[in-house]
């Protein structure tokens, strides 16, 4: 069977070629290959991309996390408030990441110890964490203005490439190393592929899953920190719906909802595709108010196409 990743990369590549050619032919009507647009893409992809890396790892173990959108928001508040209280910025970062890991571990423990579907466990966390955000945000300014060094590191540019994208690629490489090349990564796949068998060969599936939950939460917090550093402000309603978008990115990238399959490259390409679709639609002047209609339709088509090609190649 041909791996879905081959198709999705092919699909992505073809789309890129079409866009680039169209953009070169009509440079004034379709500004795809403009410095501005490329800069935008490189800044926009990482937020959802990084969240998807974590969600993807968790999906490989066969679980979901609906609380990542809330954790993303909480991370923004956490770093802004801690920094505002006078903590050095790097301590605020460490504390924020630690809070996220604690939430992830809690999600994981609740899921495995009480043997309940992670959908439910993390939906609870989604609501609770968002409630905490509401409570924290009350009457407070939530702007975050760290020093130049810090913001430059997270949102500047190196050799013309946007820093967020470099972070994204760096984290993707790390995730790839973990998932594809490490012992723990192998356990992620085995637990997600068939948990009973994994247990039978002596893998501590609970431990493996709790780690994956922690990573999902951690990734969401990193994305939250990255995005508040970029926009300078956090609002309580932000991040709603990101959890489902991240799952969609993973599915587009060839991960299975049932777990045990998928690649980090797929997640990266999925995230790029997701943003490309929105970007191209807006560049083509699709009605902005109904944007989600088009995005939704194109995503479903992409997944259908991917599934169909995979099946066909399998015969």
């Amino acid at each position: 069977m041909r791996q879905p990743i081959v198709n999705i990369c092919l699909f992505f590549f073809v789309l890129q070629v079409i866009c680039i050619v169209a953009s070169l032919l009509y440079p004034n009507d379709f500004r795809y290959v403009s410095e501005t647009n490329i800069g935008l893409l490189l800044r926009a992809i990482p937020v959802l991309g990084i969240i998807s890396l974590g969600v993807g790892v968790l999906m490989i173990t066969g679980e979901y996390d609906l609380s990542v959108g809330s954790v993303y928001t909480l991370a923004g508040y956490s770093i802004a408030l801690l920094f505002g209280m006078g903590l050095p910025v790097w301590l605020a970062v460490i504390a924020t990441l630690a809070i996220a890991i604690a939430i992830g571990v809690t999600n994981g423990l609740i899921t495995v110890k009480f043997a309940i579907p992670s959908f439910i466990a993390t939906m609870g966390a989604m609501l609770v964490v968002r409630g905490v955000v509401r409570w924290l945000s009350e009457g407070r300014t939530v702007s975050f203005k760290p020093d130049e060094t810090f913001s430059g590191l997270l949102t500047g540019a190196f050799y013309g490439i946007e820093a967020p994208f470099i972070w994204f690629i760096g984290l993707a490489l790390l995730t790839g190393l973990l998932v594809h090349k490490s012992k723990l990564g192998n356990h992620f796949y085995l637990v997600g592929g068939h948990e009973k068998t994994a247990i039978a060969v002596g893998i501590n599936s609970h431990r493996v899953k709790v780690i994956a939950f922690a990573l999902a939460s951690l990734a969401a917090a990193i994305a939250g920190i990255l995005s508040i550093t970029r926009v300078g402000t956090a609002t309580p309603a932000q991040g709603i719906g990101l959890e489902l978008k991240a799952i969609a990115v993973c599915v587009i990238g060839g991960l299975f909802l049932s777990g045990g399959r998928g690649t980090v490259l797929g997640i990266v390409v999925g995230a790029c595709l997701m943003y490309m679709v929105e970007d191209v639609l807006l560049l083509l002047r699709a009605p902005g108010f109904y944007l989600d209609v088009f995005v939704g339709a194109i995503l479903v088509v992409a997944v259908i196409l991917n599934t169909w090609l995979t099946r066909k190649a399998g015969k």
Binding site: N186, Y189, L190, G192, G193, H194, K196, T197, A198, A200, F256, G260, R261
Partner: peptide
């Protein structure tokens, strides 16, 4: 029923 993981 479960000697090996099919997807691996």
């Amino acid at each position: 029923d479960s000697a090996l993981v099919g997807s691996a």
